[in-house]
Design a binder for these strands. Structure first.
Lengths: 249, 249
DNA sequence: GCGATGCCTTGACGTAGATCAACCTTGGGC
DNA sequence: GCCCAAGGTTGATCTACGTCAAGGCATCGC
């Protein structure tokens, strides 16, 4: 089956319960079968730590289902999330033998892993893999830079609005949640504490700001996790970003 | 002359005043001569804006001499620096036709540029370019994540110490400045305001914290720009990071 | 030499968000 | 149905940093 580009995304197409597609129209079959050969799946429960920073890491891979985070912790316990991994996001770095960040499953998680050494070899011989990874890494870098603006210059309220906006945007682009013109409903995959670690705030401040946005009708909550945004524009206005194109990708 | 890997670094080797090496032992001469063909230099004075966010961008390139910054500005004028470009750093994104950030020369600046379209074509045919760019982008992503910890969780004092540490480390790795065991001396390439934009602080806070570190003997200043760090370990202790390997690459 | 200009420093004061602490909600196990 | 634990909310207070304002100190053109 010929596919135009290499995909690191989840597909359910029989065989193994969740099939991970890694095929490329321009690479020959040997490459593909090798990729299949070094592939395996790992599952984690919500709350489990996948890897501690400094652990040896003999695989790279990507998230198939669930949500994971990358975070850094200082000696005194202050922690900052530095990556939020949703389905199709890549984990690990070719050429790096140990984890640079703590990787944690925040929901039940399935990952598709490739043994690192053979993957690196394959990457040398199959240019499209490196090209695809380059695009993905550049996207992550853009996201990191948007995140830096949030961390460095936004108020607590703007931070919360931005986070909700970003999570909604990602869910929408993955076809999750409900989206109608100007509205959306979806689940927050993070606890208040995880949101605080994302935004460089305390969990109390997160809670207060969410309450405030709720009281003012910017968002609506069903339970603690499910969010309804009645007016997309209104939320965007609260993020501090300008309407068009202010936020990347 | 055969070189093992593609380099995006500055070399003065005759021909053009500052020669930009883009050679690869494993690629044939045609590729190389094409890379030479689409190459040109641009110079900017300190303070000049290279590109505004949203400007069309028909080149990619790298810094040859000087320092430039990437930054994002909100409607009300708050700005956050999201990239600090020193010699050999890459600018631009293959496949992106407009600048996503403001690019500013903070010192006199020379850049080596390649016309974007032909560069992209060349990249498709010359795998080592994508592989090299991938490594560089991954390094930038690591730096961005270190930066996120600084922005989100560190105190003003720790931020300043971290910045001085990072700048010293980079200067040392480029062979600039003076380094003896446990000591170093180098020039801050940034104004107080630029440091504030880097760290998500105000320039007054930057100034106060620098004064405090000076008063306490952690650093020493000759003029406003030249820094002497008498005890590397002492400075590192002030950054809040743990001694070994806490900070990436 | 002498303003003028662009950084930088320092001080006084205000405030957003952290901290400390109590309490509430929800869901699971029995 | 009841208890318990984990996560979430809300209030009172504290403080690090921002804001506003007044100089200081080099460098430049004249």
């Amino acid at each position: 089956m010929a596919v135009v580009d290499i995909q690191f995304t989840a597909h359910d197409c029989g065989g193994c319960p969740i099939k991970h597609r890694a095929v490329c129209a321009r690479c020959d079959d040997d490459e593909l079968s090798l990729l299949e050969e070094i592939k395996y799946y790992r599952s984690f429960e919500a709350g489990q730590t996948v890897l501690w920073s400094g652990d040896p890491m003999d695989f790279v891979g990507s998230v198939v289902t669930g949500v994971a985070t990358l975070s850094q912790t200082m000696e005194d316990g202050r922690t900052q999330m530095v990556g939020l991994l949703l389905p199709s996001d890549f984990v690990g770095r070719p050429g790096r033998g140990e984890a640079a960040y703590d990787v944690t499953a925040v929901t039940d998680l399935t990952m598709c892993c490739f043994r690192r050494k053979p993957f690196e070899k394959l990457m040398e011989r199959t240019p499209h893999i490196a090209q695809r990874l380059l695009q993905m890494t550049l996207d992550e870098l853009d996201a990191a830079r948007e995140w830096m603006l949030i961390l460095g210059r936004k108020t607590a309220r703007e931070k919360i609005a931005s986070l909700i906006f970003i999570l909604g945007r990602r869910d929408a682009s993955l076809g999750l949640g409900t989206t109608t013109v100007g509205q959306m409903t979806f689940d927050l995959p993070l606890t208040r504490e995880a949101m605080a670690d994302y935004l460089g705030l305390t969990l109390e401040t997160v809670s207060r700001q969410i309450s405030a946005l709720k009281k003012e009708g910017v968002i609506d909550l069903q339970g603690k996790r499910r969010v309804h945004v009645p007016d997309h524009e209104r939320l965007l206005a609260e993020t501090g970003d300008d309407a068009d194109g202010g936020m990347v990708a």
